[in-house]
Amino acid sequence: MDKIRKTQGGEKMKGTDIVSSFKKKFGKKLLESKIEQNGKIKYDVVWMKIPKKEIVPAIQQLFTFGTPHFAVISANDYPDKIELVYELSVGWGEKAGEILVNIKTDLAKKDLKIHSICELIPGALISEKEKQELFGVKIVNIPDNRNFFLPQDFKGHPGIKKDKRVDMLEVE
């Protein structure tokens, strides 16, 4: 699986290859996609948005391009939803061959649940724990449910911008 990094023609992978394979697999469920080019040597950065039910199949689809490198899960705190951004990359190991793939998914604040990806990527455990304790997201089937950064009896979610319990602690 690690060898599948080039396209059929032996050329380097491009962002368009990844987006078209996701479009083929998910069809209309691929809500948004865009490719940016950053840096001195322009490299591709792929941004895609999918519904939260499809997160595990999406990560699995990424494995067809080689073992992805998992960086972190970031979260954007909007008034009515939390947008999780799964930051991964494929194509590492070759000069200027890496492509950043960022998969976004929305979680409505009334239903902050999403399935864990630790079965596919065990290294995501710490990021998922962090989202649980900082944003109040419930990760279903997470291997270990304890807090990692905050004390076990901490009340409040510091990642949420307007959290009164945390605001009170800041004034001390």
Binding site: G39, Y43, G93, E94, K95
Partner: peptide
């Protein structure tokens, strides 16, 4: 061989 200086110079 993961190295950001090589993968995305």
């Amino acid at each position: 061989p993961k190295d950001v200086r090589v993968d995305q110079p």
